[in-house]
Simulated scan of single mutants.
Amino acid sequence: MTFGEQPAYLRVARDLRQQIADGKLPPHTRLPSQARIREVYGVSDTVALEARKVLMAEGLVEGRSGSGTYVRERPVPRSVARSAYRGPGSTTPFRQEQAAEGTRGTWESRSEQVEASAEVAVRLGVEPGERVMRTKYVFRDAGESMMLSTSYEPLSVTGRTPVMLPEEGPLGGCGVVERMAAIDVVVDNVAEEVGARPGLAEELAELGGVPGHVVLVIERTYYASGRAVETADLVVPADRYRVSYHLPVR
């Protein structure tokens, strides 16, 4: 192989990928067999197998037990809107988006007190092992799981207050800014960092993905005068959603 030349399995995968993109291999079509790939491209069984593995890892094809490998139907990505604080009465971004689109999303949540892990402690600026309120969410659109979220709030801030449980009490379901304002904590800054990684098995089971699928992870932290008052990880399936930001220019 000369400098700059791709390995044979990548060249085969590239050609098959292009056929899928062009519609020559439409969704639900069976991918050429390993023997057929070997014959058409003049490659070994090993190369043919590796090319198929590449397409599976990219989520373009899927194996069906006892039947073969088929082209996956590619969903049209939808947006998960992230927007700036909208003033008094604001709810969470998910609820804002649902209201704006006139749709009826649903969600489930469960809160419990836990000890802050080393990572969570760093993000909240507390000592590892300090008690925090952890709330896990599953957000659904038309019955389909579309986002997971796990948030943490230091009980040194919210403990023994009416907003200790994010989804219960007089301000249950309101956004972090509104809830904190109710206990005289003024949130003045929020930071979000977006990354991507392979989904964990339990995440993909909930989101309807398959092993190897990539998820977008939004690491969000709310601050009040430099002190973190909530941090959360939001997990979104990357093949079905895009994160869309709408922010004011100041």
Score class of each variant (00 low, 15 high):
L10N: 10
R11M: 11
V12M: 03
A13W: 00
A13K: 00
D15A: 09
L16V: 02
R17C: 01
D22F: 10
G23N: 06
K24S: 11
H28I: 09
T29A: 15
R30Y: 12
R30P: 15
L31H: 03
L31K: 05
Q34T: 13
R36A: 15
R36N: 12
I37R: 00
R38P: 04
R38T: 15
V43E: 04
S44E: 08
S44F: 07
T46I: 13
L49T: 08
R52P: 00
V54E: 10
L55Y: 01
L55H: 01
M56P: 00
V61D: 00
G63E: 12
R64M: 12
G66V: 11
G66M: 14
S67K: 14
S67M: 13
T69Q: 11
Y70K: 04
Y70N: 05
V71S: 05
R72C: 15
R72D: 07
E73P: 00
E73C: 12
V76T: 15
P77V: 08
P77G: 08
R78P: 08
R78Y: 05
S79K: 13
A81V: 13
S83Q: 07
Y85G: 02
R86A: 09
P88M: 07
G89T: 13
T92Q: 06
R95K: 15
R95V: 13
Q98D: 14
E101D: 10
E101F: 07
G105H: 02
E108W: 12
E108F: 14
S109P: 06
E112N: 12
E112M: 13
A116W: 02
R123W: 03
L124S: 02
L124K: 02
E127F: 02
V132H: 01
M133T: 06
R134L: 14
R134G: 08
T135M: 10
Y137A: 01
Y137C: 03
V138E: 05
V138C: 04
F139R: 00
R140W: 02
A142N: 14
G143T: 05
E144A: 08
E144N: 04
M146L: 13
M147T: 01
M147R: 06
L148F: 04
L148S: 01
S149W: 00
T150W: 03
Y152I: 05
E153V: 06
E153H: 04
